[in-house]
Write a protein that binds this DNA or RNA. Structure first.
Length: 204
DNA sequence: TCTACGATCTTT
DNA sequence: AAGATCGTAGAT
């Protein structure tokens, strides 16, 4: 069976219209496509609403996080450390500031394009780490707010979920309150090579 | 306006 | 252990 045959239809906005942690779990195994590049999601983090002190929306609406407050099923892309374009998928009803960060993917198609977009970057972990996912898809902040359920743009499609899932604390949010910093809101496909910073993840 | 720093990744 | 690299948010 080809990789293409495992790719389902576009996920509708209703798919995203629930708690970010639920959506995160359901997104493992789903497929992201932009042009020739097709990726399978292997690692995600939920940024929930309300009551999540690691969430970009924790202190209200800003120009940057505006898409997170909007309707579900849209991209939220922001620049991190001046270098990395981070892809999030907006969840929950309009008015809730929640999203799922895509942390890692397995490449299905478009390896040549991905390779070209890597530039001089080295290392075997091609798509482990949210910065690399953004780079592989050729994203920048101009994609923030883009719908994910329309043909031909940035598409998210149904896929086959993993057999087992790992969970652990989210990465890089030491500033959050302990309850949120330690919450196991990071999920990954067990046994996948395409998972970043494997430490701290346990079978749930 | 100014300043500190971040949901990162690589190299040393 | 630290550098690259810059937009954003909160303070002034």
């Amino acid at each position: 069976m080809s990789a293409e045959a495992q790719v389902g239809g576009l996920l509708p906005p209703s798919f995203y219209d629930r708690d970010a942690l639920e959506v995160a779990a359901a997104l493992l195994g789903a497929v992201i496509r932009r042009g020739p590049v097709v990726l399978r999601i292997t690692e995600v983090e939920a940024y929930r609403w309300p009551d999540d002190s690691a969430n970009h929306c924790r202190s209200g609406r800003t120009a940057r996080n505006a898409p997170m407050w909007g309707p579900p099923g849209h991209a939220y892309v922001y620049l991190c450390y001046g270098i990395h374009s981070m892809l999030n998928l907006v969840t929950g009803p309009e008015g809730h500031g929640a999203a799922v960060l895509i942390r890692a993917c397995a490449p299905l198609e478009g390896l040549e394009t991905i390779q070209a977009r890597r530039g001089k970057a080295k290392g075997p972990a091609l798509l482990a780490g949210p910065g690399r996912v953004g780079a592989a898809l050729g994203l920048d902040t101009g994609w923030s707010g883009h719908p994910l359920f329309t043909e031909g743009g940035l598409e998210v499609r149904a896929g086959r979920p993993p057999e087992a899932v790992l969970a652990g604390p989210r990465v890089g949010i030491d500033y959050a309150e302990p309850a949120h910093r330690d919450a196991p809101w990071r999920l990954a496909a067990a046994g996948s090579r395409w998972v970043s910073q494997r430490r701290g993840l346990d079978r749930r």
